[in-house]
Design a protein around this nucleic acid. Structure first.
Lengths: 113, 113
DNA sequence: GTCAAAGTTTGACGGCTATCGTACTTATAT
DNA sequence: ATATAAGTACGATAGCCGTCAAACTTTGAC
């Protein structure tokens, strides 16, 4: 059996599906963690508080929207953020979600008074 | 009775609520129409295909997320896009949704063969 | 005062989806 | 070969949300 899942092409990315993927806090957290490290992360290595089966569901939604790419390394399924392709399809969207303001703001440092 | 609804302050805008407002195609269409004209539009003057009561619901969601400001002019409720304030709270988000790519692309002109 | 126009409110309904547990599959280590 | 680890697949469930119709409110026109 083939263990490599199908990934959509950039030309088929669409805003509706991407927004539906990103509106869920757990999925957005996954994307943020990938964006923060710029490295591949195994499904089980994310800091999320849902069961494994629920996590699988979230990764599927992210993959089908084109946000992540998945491949196996042993028994671990590694996840890569498709940053460049998403930027090409929907310029500025991921940038907007990764700004300090989009996160909670309050970056410490000059913590107002 | 006061007919002016309450509007959230910029400091209380939050990404989750804004994304939940923008993920619905009808509501995103409302925002796009407001962004395209840069003028106030009455609730009944939008090109949307839902009943009046459903439209009321959508406007409420948009207002509570901070995306629009509403005020009465006679019996008509006018809607204003809070563009500058939203840009301050979540820089780049509305820009990302109004790019040609975010829309259907295919802007005609050089319609590839 | 009467009527029409523009929205709101309320209640109901249906479908979608995030969630979980259990069983299953695949690969690695012993 | 056995056991364990990492995910997947499959129901099942519960809650939310978009939708509408009907009744109501408010304003402006006649």
């Amino acid at each position: 059996m083939e263990r490599t899942p199908s990934h959509p092409e950039v030309s088929t990315f669409n805003l509706q599906q991407v927004l539906e993927a990103l509106v869920d806090p757990v999925r957005r957290s996954i994307v943020m963690q990938l964006d923060a490290t710029c490295e591949d992360i195994a499904c089980g290595a994310f800091d999320i508080s849902v069961s494994k089966s629920t996590a699988t569901h979230h990764f599927k939604v992210l993959r089908e929207a084109g946000l992540i790419r998945q491949h196996y390394v042993g028994t671990s399924r590694m996840n890569t953020l498709r940053r460049a392709e998403m930027d090409e399809a929907l310029p500025g969207l991921l940038d907007a979600l990764t700004t300090p303001q989009a996160q909670g703001a309050l970056i410490s440092g000059s913590a107002g008074k």
